[in-house]
């Protein structure tokens, strides 16, 4: 009986040690990844730029023309892709984006300072960064003048029938995805912007969790299956005038 108890005790102790070892190994590998992340930080800009260049090359192969050579108004810092319009450029879209629905003519864009005034004609238009991304955080600031319609931050864009989005229409926010042309709404709520000035619209898509923010306030939160990486950008469907600035996208790394 004593021998049996001893064997059981040893077996159990070994089990505990193995379990603890597995836990600490998991933590150490996590730390190592973090350390690697840090050590790669300096190189990230180059790596990400290369990735962006590759993406742009792919878009060239796909027939997406870039008439302005290698220079770009969008910049990739670490995992962040940012776009700031410049009054010096005659074409504010083509360097950083390509249109996936409609064209620049549908938006009648004019640069004023660090923002762009859009006068959409009523035809839906969507432009996206050249990079395909998976988990992302995206943000844009907008100011509505007499715009009537829907402004969307789109992500995981595959084609016009398949993408995910957060949209604002007046003070109504919708969070969802379009699958085979059918809209699937994860969450929908109204919000108060407090003033008629600039409003920051933010979206995060992290794993199965999707969130829409106005400024720092979370408005919508929904869940869905994780999709394949896709393009990130904006879609405008309406008429009137609105201004946009500071479109940024952050790639969220897997842990």
């Amino acid at each position: 009986m004593k021998i049996k108890n001893s064997i059981l005790s040893i077996t159990f102790a070994v089990g505990i040690i193995l379990f603890w070892g597995a836990c600490t190994t998991s933590n150490k590998s996590g730390e190592q990844e973090t350390a690697e992340e840090h050590s790669h930080d300096e190189g990230d800009e180059h790596a990400s730029t290369e990735a962006m260049d590759m993406s742009m090359d792919e878009s060239h192969e796909d027939g997406q023309e870039n008439e302005h050579g290698d220079e770009s108004m969008s910049s990739m810092h670490g995992d962040e892709l940012a776009w700031a319009p410049s009054a010096d450029d005659s074409d504010i879209f083509s360097k950083s984006f390509h249109f996936v629905i409609g064209s620049a003519d549908d938006l009648e864009a004019t640069v004023s300072g660090n923002s762009v005034t859009l006068n959409p004609s009523g035809n839906t238009a969507a432009f996206v960064f050249h990079n395909k991304l998976g988990n992302i955080g995206g943000e844009v600031s907008y100011m509505l003048h007499d715009f009537k319609g829907e402004l969307k931050l789109i992500h995981h864009f595959k084609d016009a029938q398949n993408y995910e989005f957060v949209s604002v229409n007046g003070n109504q926010m919708k969070l969802g995805r379009v699958v085979n042309g059918e809209e699937d709404i994860f969450d929908e709520k109204s919000f108060d912007t407090g003033s008629s000035g600039w409003v920051q619209l933010r979206v995060s898509a992290a794993g199965r969790h999707f969130k829409g923010y106005i400024g720092d306030e979370n408005i919508t939160h929904g869940h869905g299956d994780e999709l394949e990486p896709g393009y990130v950008g904006m879609m405008i469907d309406g008429t009137g005038s609105l201004m946009v600035k500071d479109l940024k996208v952050t790639a969220l790394d897997e842990e």
């Binding site: 955080g137 995060s204 199965r208 969790h209 923010y213 939160h221 790394d253």
Partner: peptide, 20 residues
Amino acid sequence: AADTVNPPFKAELTMSNHSD
């Protein structure tokens, strides 16, 4: 709580995994 805090984008994936 997840809907009342304002995490940086970099924390969103960790928050999602924490929730799952």
